[in-house]
Amino acid sequence: MDHLKVGHSVSVAGVVLDDQGRALLVQRRDNGHWEAPGGILERDEDITTGLVREVREETGLIVEPLALTGVYKNMTRAVVALVFRCTTTGGHLTANRESRAFRWADPQEVRTLANEAFAIRVLDAMRPDQPPAVRHHDGTRLLTNP
């Protein structure tokens, strides 16, 4: 029964696209990394509620998820991330205690600003003609399927 003692965290992230097809990246205050806004789901909240809450907390924007674009597992930290392409329905970009800066980025800028494990989430979401991706990483680099 040891498998019951070791659990996974589930996180959500929203890739918000503008009318030019660029993705919103957030620069985190805690580590300076550029990522899509998101975070860990609270135990008692559903996936959509958690997604909307996390994006609003980090950006000030109110979003609506359009599609699941990928499922990603950090093999080092046992975090499974659900990533959604989102549209904005309200709010205004606002720096806060979690986010220091924002940037609308094209695919090349995403590759330059974000580490591989987080860039791929955004790049997958920027391709609307693809089925949801299933990927594994170590927190920085993509891994082949174990």
Results as ranks from 00 to 15, higher is better:
3 H>G: 14
7 G>R: 11
19 D>L: 13
19 D>C: 08
19 D>R: 15
20 Q>I: 00
21 G>C: 12
22 R>W: 00
22 R>K: 15
25 L>G: 06
28 R>M: 09
28 R>S: 15
31 N>R: 11
33 H>D: 13
35 E>G: 00
38 G>Y: 09
39 G>D: 11
41 L>P: 08
43 R>F: 10
43 R>Q: 12
43 R>G: 13
46 D>C: 12
46 D>M: 01
46 D>K: 11
46 D>H: 11
49 T>H: 12
53 R>A: 10
54 E>N: 10
55 V>C: 01
55 V>S: 02
55 V>M: 03
57 E>I: 00
57 E>F: 13
58 E>S: 03
59 T>E: 04
60 G>Q: 01
62 I>W: 11
64 E>D: 07
64 E>M: 09
67 A>Q: 14
68 L>N: 11
68 L>E: 13
72 Y>T: 06
73 K>I: 14
74 N>H: 09
75 M>G: 01
76 T>G: 02
77 R>M: 08
77 R>G: 05
78 A>Y: 13
79 V>K: 12
80 V>E: 13
80 V>C: 05
82 L>E: 12
83 V>D: 09
85 R>G: 02
87 T>M: 06
87 T>H: 02
87 T>I: 03
88 T>Q: 15
88 T>A: 15
91 G>V: 05
91 G>W: 02
91 G>N: 00
91 G>Y: 02
92 H>I: 13
92 H>T: 15
95 A>N: 03
96 N>M: 08
96 N>V: 09
101 A>R: 14
101 A>E: 14
101 A>L: 06
106 D>M: 04
108 Q>I: 03
112 T>G: 02
114 A>W: 00
114 A>I: 04
116 E>I: 05
117 A>L: 05
118 F>M: 08
120 I>G: 00
122 V>M: 04
122 V>L: 04
122 V>I: 11
123 L>I: 15
123 L>T: 11
124 D>K: 06
124 D>V: 02
126 M>D: 13
127 R>A: 13
127 R>L: 06
128 P>M: 07
128 P>G: 14
129 D>W: 08
129 D>G: 08
134 V>H: 07
134 V>N: 02
135 R>G: 00
135 R>P: 00
135 R>F: 01
136 H>D: 00
142 L>V: 01
142 L>F: 01
142 L>T: 01
144 T>V: 04
144 T>M: 05
145 N>E: 14
146 P>I: 10
